[in-house]
Design a protein around this nucleic acid. Structure first.
Lengths: 199, 199
DNA sequence: ACAACTTGCAACACTAATGACGCAAGTAAT
DNA sequence: ATTACTTGCGTCATTAGTGTTGCAAGTTGT
């Protein structure tokens, strides 16, 4: 049984957390992202070491490995939603929104790639936010279709999956600057890599 | 130490393998693909159960978990190379070759998705074959550029990564028929999902 | 029929990882 | 300064997974 002496996780309580404890939680989350993105099977020991804390401290803050990964997913999901939100995808022309969203999401994705891949969390709140973003994406694509930017004969679901895949691919390039990547993603999404000859 | 009473793996010996043993090896490889593609951290026990054999039998045939995964990678890599080969990508017009290769690879990928994702094997033979296929892909793309099918201003490396990503994405759709998927992949790769308006 | 081979089963040893606990030392907030 | 909180360290228990071995029973090929 998990009987801990004080609260566990990030937002599981309304209690105020002492600043040093909050720093530790943050350090663990960031270290976990760094370590797990390189090796998803890494041990708690390795994560603790990367965070510069003792393994027991990790267990004090997160009741189990699963709880830690869930907290990462929740954290990254919030960042993700914020990124989409900050791009105002509903109130700008579709093409502009596409660039903005792409650039914002790429930033988050390069920092929280592992956590974001764990989107299928059992936390209903996380699932809700992801469904919400997906819905937003579909709305944006439908607006783009209406504006004649997106072809009307392509399935919106397929378009979204291609979009996600391109973002994922672009996020692997850790070197290039974000704006160039966003441009490349949107360009490839809309025009592909062909000339249009011979079709 | 691994001191087994008889040969381990698939092609690690020239000795003739009894037919029932060969069947078992095949069953294990296929079961491992099925199980590991759903859960990469699945235990040998689960793999054995899915293969309908005892766990000890798996260990008799594959000295370690690593050896099993390596054998899967080798097996899938052979299938992969055969698929590319059968499409004759060098001797047909680039556009035709693109369709043929896509369709062939999609078939293999839907059956050996996990094993193929383990492309980065330490087996030099596997690495060689993958590098070979990559080289073939680049050659095909350069021929396509020369033929005016592919834009000259896109990086060949990026085009290949997009191509791989689209194939990966299409392979997730287990329902649709392979030819339709191949068409969709090539279409999206060359034309994207945009109309070309507003760029 | 016979020899060689293969499998399942039961048992075993070993390892790595997880999680819990108490205590001493240190830090934050009042 | 005092109180409450937090951390590191050492330690322990438990579990799950891995890999090995011997043997009886069954199968394959000749």
């Amino acid at each position: 049984m998990a009987t801990l002496s004080y609260p566990v996780g990030v937002s599981e309580t309304t209690r105020v957390m002492r600043s040093d404890a909050a720093r530790t939680v943050r350090a663990i989350l960031e270290a976990a992202e760094r370590v797990l993105s390189k090796n998803p099977a890494a041990s708690m020991e390795q994560i603790a070491e990367a965070a510069g804390v003792a393994r027991t401290t990790v267990h004090r803050r997160f009741a189990s490995r699963e709880a830690l990964v869930d907290a990462m997913a929740a954290w990254a999901t919030r960042k993700f939603a914020e990124a989409v939100e900050s791009a105002h995808p509903e109130s700008t022309p579709p093409l502009v929104a596409l660039y903005q969203v792409t650039a914002s999401v790429l930033k988050v994705k390069s920092d929280w790639g592992f956590a974001m891949s764990r989107a299928l969390s059992d936390d209903p709140e996380v699932a809700r936010v992801h469904a919400d973003v997906e819905e937003r994406c579909d709305r944006l694509f439908r607006r783009a279709q209406a504006a004649g930017v997106l072809r009307a004969d392509v399935d919106t679901g397929w378009a979204r999956r291609v979009y996600y895949a391109l973002i994922h691919e672009a996020a692997q390039s850790r070197d290039a600057e974000p704006d160039a990547l966003a441009t490349r993603v949107v360009d490839t999404l809309l025009r592909g890599v062909g000339t249009g000859q011979g079709l």
